[in-house]
Design a binder for these strands. Sequence first.
DNA 1: TTGTAGGCGTTATCAG
DNA 2: CTGATAACGCCTACAA
Lengths: 330, 330
Amino acid sequence: MLDSHRRITITEFAEILGTSTATVSRAFSDKGRISSKTRQRILQKAAELGYRPNIHARNLTARHSDTIALFYPELRGEEPDYFLSEIMLGINRNLIPLKKTLQIHPFERNAIPDEMGRYIDLLLNGSFAGIIVLGETVGSKTLVNAARHNGIPCIGIGPAPAPPTNSLWFDNEAGAFLAGKYYRDTGRRHPVYIAGFADATKENGFREGYAGKVNILEGGHSFRHGALAYERLVREFPETDCVLCANDVLAIGFMKAAFDNGRRIPADLAVIGYDDIHPARYVNPALSSVTLNLYDLGVKSVQMLGQLLFGEKEVPSESIQCDLILRQSS
Amino acid sequence: MLDSHRRITITEFAEILGTSTATVSRAFSDKGRISSKTRQRILQKAAELGYRPNIHARNLTARHSDTIALFYPELRGEEPDYFLSEIMLGINRNLIPLKKTLQIHPFERNAIPDEMGRYIDLLLNGSFAGIIVLGETVGSKTLVNAARHNGIPCIGIGPAPAPPTNSLWFDNEAGAFLAGKYYRDTGRRHPVYIAGFADATKENGFREGYAGKVNILEGGHSFRHGALAYERLVREFPETDCVLCANDVLAIGFMKAAFDNGRRIPADLAVIGYDDIHPARYVNPALSSVTLNLYDLGVKSVQMLGQLLFGEKEVPSESIQCDLILRQSS
DNA sequence: TTGTAGGCGTTATCAG
DNA sequence: CTGATAACGCCTACAA
């Protein structure tokens, strides 16, 4: 049964052709001298007989594969990670020209280094041509370090501060600052920051931008967290007239609860999100947000990785600009 | 340079241990008799010296890898595919126990079989332990067939009609029927169906459910398409008082445009979406939708694939139930 | 329980 | 330009 599906090997194939395995190999490899006539013949016959180079044998000799891996701290909720989706789209769209293939590796967000063993293993098995690591978590850093230590091409994506090379960063403090300043300039009086994961940077940026006291509320990373945050806001800070949410998902959930509660946005309560995921534009009211240009982040990360793959020892880190996109909610 | 990162091989490692490579292999393979004492010793020493089995060599002898691939027809827009995101979440969450790794392969939605060569190659290279194929496109079918022909474990996910085995399906006609019937029962007079990809099934189901004439409008698969559809609706079918959108993204875009245009939903105009992606619950008004239980679809698909991987020749196809989830928009 | 040795399918080196 | 042949690193009979 299995045997009936057994593919023909280079040896058998070469025999049929009456040539050597070396020549067949050359026909498929683009390097190594070979007359275009024999290549033609070989390629055609291959199509005919269904011969294809075995990728594992190939990887074994080449000592690496054509797959690049994306590692990211997983959201432990029941909702997809929209932040990730946008970045991944950018990545995927640009992998084709590199003839690489994408592998997805979510890891536990709160993992300590010792718990990253499984991923380090993957990394060190020589399975990947290169990797992209998302996030600022301990796990992320563990991965990035392991990659560097072992000479594996690796681009890190995350908030500042970032190493001077091989990383792509954005300045959350600056982004949140924009929101704070905007609220100050538009005369809002009682700002609240609704936090996502522990990240003092956004909170600080927001406070500095506002140049005044801001209240803090625990948020999270799901629509539901956002809705819950609204309920808490009503109880704890009823005077609030503007909020910055640590991410758009939170903001959308928050707005939903506020809207259903009869709050007028932005008249009574302004809200600004963070990340600028696509749905932000299509909720009611359309959500103002600090854009991280997520798609571009993805695109750029594979460009950088491409250079590494191409032979560069390292590439200078780059940053992506944050902007405040004003829509209807603020 | 590269050499400094060269990992130790089984031969060298065995030599250091003063044992044979076979024993080392056994220590790592869980099968093959070996005293737990020597295994202990070997595993520990391995950790010490940083020895890890080379995955490519492993794959070569095993004739397959531990990666499973997800193939899906790509949305050619600038937005992530939210439908896919939900399914992928379900898949990812259940891959860990299988100790498998996920690879992502978007392909051109309108690809004809001849253009699927690249993916067929991947498939036939023996690279995958198994695959999951999404969609009802020609490309999807090509892939599924190739897999079956070559004895590669494969689960297809898509709308009915589906083959009797190895596939996971949902009944779009039945789903859309629910929406049509609901509109009939709630006294709506002028229904419009806003189409996504060419899929007569939903349209038919909707019409049958409504048991009357329904107008059709081209839609698409992005928020923007939805918004545009609203504009066209105003011009072409101004009397419309209820719509079914082929997917939620469309519906959300549509509602946004309607809302900004001062339309009262659902009073003047009811809208129902399809797929029930998470954001549907958090837009204003909350979107009624035909749920496909996308997450469960993902979960179930890996369960089925798991059986195939476990040795079953084939598993009976299963279906996932569609339900109409009523929220605020209808 | 452990060791020996051949094989997995390619690629790379070195002659020819 | 083409052919032999030795790696690549591991697994698995088979033998001990």
